[in-house]
Design a protein around this nucleic acid. Structure first.
Length: 629
DNA sequence: ATAGGGTTAG
């Protein structure tokens, strides 16, 4: 008690009168008192002041008193003071409840709610909306069910706000059946109700069902469209995301910041640079330039379109950069053949006092592995836990094995796997297998495949690589055995597929596909290119064709690779001089790599191929990967 | 005074 009294008298009270200044108003005196009021034990003084000056506390002052006393035994005393003030008691406690619900410790709201119940304070619909907000923050479904009971008992069950809050709470706390049940029996739903359901169907990966609801909604607002677009992006269906965005524009709904993020993500996935640039323009026109998340997504879009310089432009113009901005830029440089710059950028990041996270290190390790910088990679790997306290994840181990294996340090890579502190996965052993192919080590490849067949027996890629390794060593019988094993295990080779987006339309080419309406035109153009390529020394590399067929047949197969089809299609259907951007589902084959280098020179165009792992920017006969991949 | 989207790797 005395401690608080002391603090009251000794603390500076700005409104305390000076000797000659006019007498302070009672309200100023109360404010002065409240200014230092931090403990419920001072309530008596407050109360005395009220009586002495005969001035009731304002709503703001009462709320302050309420929040100090809310979770203490002085609660009933505070209630009394609020009642004496003549102000509406429920309002005061509600505002306090709201503050707690929005604070970092929403559980305080739950405790206050229980006080309100214990002392019989009158509750209204606002009370419930705030306590539900707190429960939502806590993902407290059980609490939700209890509150739901209260809501019904007190007759608020037909309040749409509360119904929506309850549906949201159930869905957030994973009680989807309860959410659905409530949703189904709601007599009236508004756009918020539908949006909640769509959002959470999407989060459960149920994009089709979400789209079903989207179709049934009586009205849609910008959030409905955005959630659905985002749903398609997250569900790996960026074409549909972009289609829907076009429909949104037709419906004359104005995109907001979140829409911009969603559509940019779709552009990034599709390498749809034209649309991406349009959205960039729109974003600037709409004044979204200072939004860090938008900038990060823009940066990522340019990176994923292979436009490192445009990405750098966005990065440099940013007013604020978060760890996400730096990590995205580092990763971007890494997979675009600019590993050294990635490492330099990391030093700048550290100078800027930005703390790296696990993603930053993934980018750094990628930079090292794509450039063959073994010692640097080892050092970063050691540094991440030593200097930054980041525990390496499976991705980091994967990068390290990739780094060592590509550099030919296969034994060390193998040892590294065996000493890992977590269980290696398919990616880790797969990295070793990949290195074994480059460095022609059959023995370790067999060791790797043993693990891979256990870990990931349905992944066709590993069989293909092993079969390749045997074939390149001219051990045909073993190569055939691998393919036989593949058949026995019911594993099918994923067909190569490449896509190109022209004016917002995605054109997809699957290896060997001859059904495209422009097939003849593509062939014709290819034959012309081939003549010029041969003049420049191109020899078809049939070793990448694993089929047991005639050499001349193999050559035909080579010409049907999806990336070649997509590139030639792009040459035909875009203006001279424009860059061609292709996305491939697998890695680029060696023959295509050699061919595309020459084509970039012959037609004097930039050709960007984003494959499973990285970018290949072909320009003037060379590739940004410097043939190290 | 009350309800519903967003960023980097894989």
């Amino acid at each position: 008690m005395s401690r608080y009294a002391l603090s009251l008298t000794s603390s500076p009270a700005p409104q305390t009168p000076q000797t000659n200044s006019p007498k302070p108003t009672p309200e100023a005196l109360q404010n002065a008192l409240l200014h230092t009021f931090k403990s419920p034990f001072e309530l008596k003084q407050i109360h005395a002041q009220i009586i002495k000056t005969n001035t009731p506390l304002s709503v703001l002052q009462l709320s302050h008193v309420a929040s100090v006393c809310a979770l203490t035994p002085t609660f009933p005393y505070a209630t009394k003071i609020i009642q004496l003030s003549g102000k509406h008691e429920t309002d005061i406690w509600n505002s306090c409840l709201k503050d707690f619900a929005e604070s970092d410790s929403p559980y305080d709201a739950v405790r206050l709610f229980s006080q309100l119940c214990t002392y019989g304070v009158c509750l209204n619909d606002y009370t419930f909306s705030f306590i539900l907000k707190a429960c939502t923050k806590l993902s407290d479904g059980l609490g939700g069910r209890i509150i739901h009971g209260f809501v019904e008992k007190l007759g608020f069950q037909s309040n749409l706000f509360l119904q929506n809050s309850l549906v949201h709470l159930y869905v957030v706390s994973g009680e989807f059946d309860n959410a659905r049940q409530l949703f189904d029996k709601m007599p009236d739903r508004d756009v918020v109700t539908w949006n909640i359901m769509i959002k959470h169907l999407v989060q459960r990966g149920n994009v089709d069902e979400a789209y079903g609801l989207f179709g049934k909604m009586p009205e849609r607002n910008v959030r409905s469209w955005t959630s659905m677009i985002m749903g398609f992006v997250r569900g790996g269906r960026p074409e549909q995301a972009i289609d829907l965005f076009a429909k949104m524009e037709e419906a004359k709904v104005c995109p907001n910041e979140v829409t911009v993020v969603a559509v940019l993500a779709a552009c990034a996935d599709l390498c749809a640079l034209d649309l991406g640039k349009k959205i960039h323009d729109y974003s600037n026109r709409s004044g979204f330039k200072r939004n860090v998340r938008i900038c990060n997504t823009l940066l990522d879009m340019y990176i994923k379109c292979g436009c490192v310089e445009a990405a750098r432009g966005v990065f440099e113009e940013m007013e604020q950069r978060t760890v996400v901005s730096w990590s995205a830029m580092i990763q971007g440089l890494a997979i675009n053949g600019k590993g050294e710059e990635a490492l330099t950028l990391f030093s700048k990041m550290i100078e800027s006092q930005i703390k790296p996270n696990e993603v930053t290190f993934t980018g750094l390790l990628h930079a090292c592995s794509h450039m063959g910088m073994v010692n640097e990679g080892r050092e970063y790997f050691a540094s991440m836990s030593r200097d930054y306290g980041i525990v390496p994840q499976i991705e980091h181990y994967g990068c390290m094995v990739d780094l060592l294996s590509r550099a030919g340090l296969l034994k060390e890579a193998c040892e590294f796997i065996k000493n890992m502190r977590i269980k290696p996965n398919g990616v880790v052993w797969g990295a070793l297998l990949g290195g074994c192919r480059v460095h022609k080590n059959i023995e370790l490849a067999e060791e790797a495949i043993k693990h891979l067949l256990e870990l990931d027996p349905l992944n066709d890629g590993y069989y293909i690589v092993l079969s390749n390794i045997y074939a390149e060593a001219k051990r045909w019988e073993e190569a055939a055995n691998v393919r036989k094993l593949m058949r026995e295990n019911g594993v099918k080779k994923t067909p190569g597929s490449s896509s190109i987006t022209i004016e917002g339309v995605v054109h997809e080419f699957v290896a060997g596909d001859e059904t495209h309406p422009q097939t003849d035109e593509i062939k014709e153009r290819w034959d012309k290119l081939l003549e010029e390529m041969r003049v420049r020394g191109y020899v078809p590399n049939t070793s990448v064709v694993l089929l047991d067929i005639e050499e001349s047949e193999k050559v035909k197969f080579l010409f049907r690779h999806s990336e070649k089809l997509a590139v030639v299609f792009g040459l035909i259907n875009t203006a001279n001089g424009t860059a061609i951007r292709i996305v491939k589902n697998l890695r680029v084959c060696e023959d295509c790599h050699a061919a595309l280098k020459l084509i970039s020179e012959i037609v004097d165009r930039e050709i960007v191929v984003r494959d499973r792992n990285r970018f290949h920017c072909f320009k003037n006969g060379v590739c940004s990967c410097k043939d190290f991949w």
